[in-house]
Design a protein around this nucleic acid. Structure first.
Lengths: 215, 215
DNA sequence: GACTACATACCAACCAGTCGGTATCAATCG
DNA sequence: CGATTGATACCGACTGGTTGGTATGTAGTC
């Protein structure tokens, strides 16, 4: 089932080609022939592994969740002792990922859900699982940071975690519109500033508004 | 040239149909036949007014800029005397627009640029014009609010105006993934909170340090 | 010999775009 | 005044290439 690194089979070649093609051209504009050509396989292979293009979209979204999930699970921001530093480290990590061409750092499921949310419930659900599942990995740290700061807020860790995802998705749209990552980095800076303002510095007991920035 | 309310011609019927269809199904999945059927005209009329589907996309983006621009130009948030209140009023206005079905409150150009940024530079530029032009309408108020608060920041009014657009675009993606506006409203609330934290109450000669929120 | 993993050939529907034609109106001219 | 011209707006049948999907074949493996 799981394919070892040695010989990539048609299925995983198609999925990897899909991640790249769909992020570049969108889901609808990516044809099955495009996918097969990019993967170096034939149409017979495609419909052997996926019973329709829509099912491929669902599997591609799940594949995206797995590959990106693994990347974030091993990222260094988890090493910080302080939960707030882990959250800020996550955002800094996302900013550091803004390298290369726009199709290389943008999000598959954010792109795909825009086109399919009304026409393909299965793909929409898969994209929701991907975004929401990823956001959930931040909730525990956000909650711990709230407790550390003694915050009793009228918002929940869940909405802040999803807000962080919203800023990232919106930053990707700006990057696409402007043809570069610079404006996305600016927007992520604003997000970092929000988090720093939201969680007042705790370590110094009641010292006034000293603006020491973490990293 | 400009068409009066009495008899909508094929061109404007096609553009209005495009705003609705593209927001629902995306640009690539919206066919010329779809547009003609929704507008109640024939293909001959379409290619009489637009020399290609891509040109239609460009004109549709410009049409979107005009119709939404008019709506915001006359919105009540401009009436506030305080520039920060105008900015916060803008964001509150955007939140209040989250009514009806998802295709009705989401953004045409944000959807379209995701699919076309690599394949159609003309459409991408039109979408950029729309987003950036709209963001510019906020810059003067942001700059005035910065001066009122005596802020000397390491960010510019332009990046904050675009960050606001990024949050809105990202909120739309979340709404599409989750099938409802609720999560988008939560994200806009976080944006409002950021603005309130960013601009400290300036009340020295107006009022005491009252924490009343400007709606 | 059954099963998996592909490849090849093919199809009906659909796609953007074309083309010849018609309806309407305003300006021009005898 | 009526006839002619020309420009604009629109119609709808048509086309050639493309689309997602299928039917059938085959090489390797248990």
């Amino acid at each position: 089932m799981a394919n070892q690194s040695a010989k990539p089979d048609a299925r995983s070649k198609l999925l990897d080609a899909g991640l790249s093609l769909i992020r570049t051209k969108g889901y609808s504009a990516t044809t099955v022939d495009d996918l097969c050509a990019a993967a170096g396989v034939t149409k017979g292979a495609f419909f052997h592994h996926f019973k329709s293009k829509d099912e491929f979209g669902v599997v591609a979204a799940d594949h995206w969740s797995q590959t990106t999930g693994a990347r974030f699970a091993h990222a260094p921001y988890h090493d910080h002792a302080d939960p707030l530093d882990r959250v800020l480290g996550y955002v800094a990590f996302r900013k550091a990922l803004l390298k290369g061409g726009v199709p290389e750092f943008t999000c598959l499921v954010g792109t795909m859900v825009q086109e399919t949310y009304e026409t393909s419930p299965a793909i929409r659900d898969a994209c929701d699982r991907s975004i929401s599942g990823h956001a959930e990995t931040l909730e525990a740290d956000i909650e711990a940071a709230m407790q550390d700061c003694g915050l009793s807020a009228d918002w929940t860790p869940r909405t802040l975690a999803l807000h962080i995802q919203a800023v990232l998705q919106g930053a990707f749209i700006l990057a696409k519109a402007k043809g570069g990552a610079a404006i996305a980095a600016d927007s992520i800076d604003h997000l970092t500033r929000y988090l720093e303002l939201l969680f007042p510095p705790k370590d110094i007991d009641h010292q006034s508004k000293n603006q020491t920035r973490r990293t």
